[in-house]
Design a protein around this nucleic acid. Structure first.
Lengths: 189, 189
DNA sequence: TTGATTTCTTGATCTAGGTCAAGTAGGTTG
DNA sequence: CAACCTACTTGACCTAGATCAAGAAATCAA
């Protein structure tokens, strides 16, 4: 299997033929550090898999930016509401480092079901999984302190903390960089 | 069309035949005020549509309850991670008032695709829609004050505020009942 | 109708986390 | 190897919202 097929295999329960078919629609793409994969308001007509690098999903408010999430190696990236419902994108998506992607464009994405009969079911399961993850995230805001949310993210996504400016991690946790700094110091002792 | 078909029609782009087919799998069910539709840890083997009444989705922590959401007339209810992935339920779901449901059990739910070819695609769209809604909810915690979150919910879900104890609404907004009380008073003037 | 419960409001006080400002430490570029 | 960014830390102070406690209104039960 190619590297991309290996990755797809980790998400989708397909046989080799299906994997090869799906993989054949994905084309390599590079987004340089600082460049935008997507801008708010534009249609998002693609779905990508991150082979290396990192992308930050954020929104521009009048007085500040809010980082919704940072996606790294081994995860998919898109603006789902734009891709699926053809609405203007709600998110900016920008590379935090040189990033290598495999990208499928919307036209091909919409035809996957024609080639792979169980694609719609598989896709449903995938999106359901994403939904459940977000439910947990909402719950973390309802039930946890800043420090608890920090610890949870740190344990489940340790990679981020070496590579990403703290301010972005703070924003996606709903706190300030100073707060993270203080949590860290506290935890040294 | 029956009432249930009307409701389904508002969610799903099906013709009359498909609507009737789907509807035929749903059976009426009553949950009395205070009774549980689902308890944490049990498998959730059903999906329901709320015809009247209200259900509260919550988690028991050691020292308090956290309300994740309250679902009312015209919405679906289930524990998706349990229904789809056959895991133990994460949520308690309890009736806040006598509640009339139309319920499909998991066995039938899993067979809908056999009767309605476009079910998997439709279901995907439905879950994608739920995902996008949750993205917005996460974003509200990252970017809004308590008062802004309160106003947003109030505008989009006014029904709740007459019928539901304030403490539950407060919990699902991630604040205390006292805070809501003060926001209200402030907004009188 | 009346007592009993539950919910909601209000005030007093407290605290987690925000804001502002200054300093420090790594990287990177000429 | 400066000079310059940019990221990170720290301290002083502030504030949104929590907590605690006491009443006031509803709601319910009989």
């Amino acid at each position: 299997m190619t590297e991309l097929e290996e990755y797809l295999h980790s998400y989708f329960d397909f046989d080799r033929t299906d994997l090869a078919t799906v993989a054949s629609f994905f084309k390599p793409e590079i987004v340089r550090k600082g460049e935008f994969y997507l801008k708010t308001g534009k249609p998002c007509n693609k779905l990508s898999f991150i082979q290396s690098g990192m992308l930050r999903i954020f929104v521009d408010l009048e007085d500040r930016e809010v980082t919704q999430w940072i996606s790294t190696k081994g995860y998919f990236i898109t603006d789902l509401s734009s891709l699926v419902f053809e609405k203007p994108s709600r998110w900016n998506i920008q590379a935090l480092a040189d990033t290598a992607l495999y990208t499928i464009d919307k036209r091909d994405y919409d035809r996957l079901g024609d080639f792979i009969p169980k694609w719609p079911v598989t896709e449903k399961l995938f999106i359901a999984h994403c939904f459940v993850t977000l439910e947990d995230r909402v719950f973390s805001f309802l039930s946890m302190t800043a420090e608890q949310r920090y610890n949870l993210l740190f344990e489940s996504y340790r990679d981020l903390f070496n590579q990403v400016p703290l301010q972005y991690i703070a924003s996606m946790l709903g706190m300030t960089p100073e707060t993270i700094s203080r949590i860290r110091r506290k935890q040294l002792s």
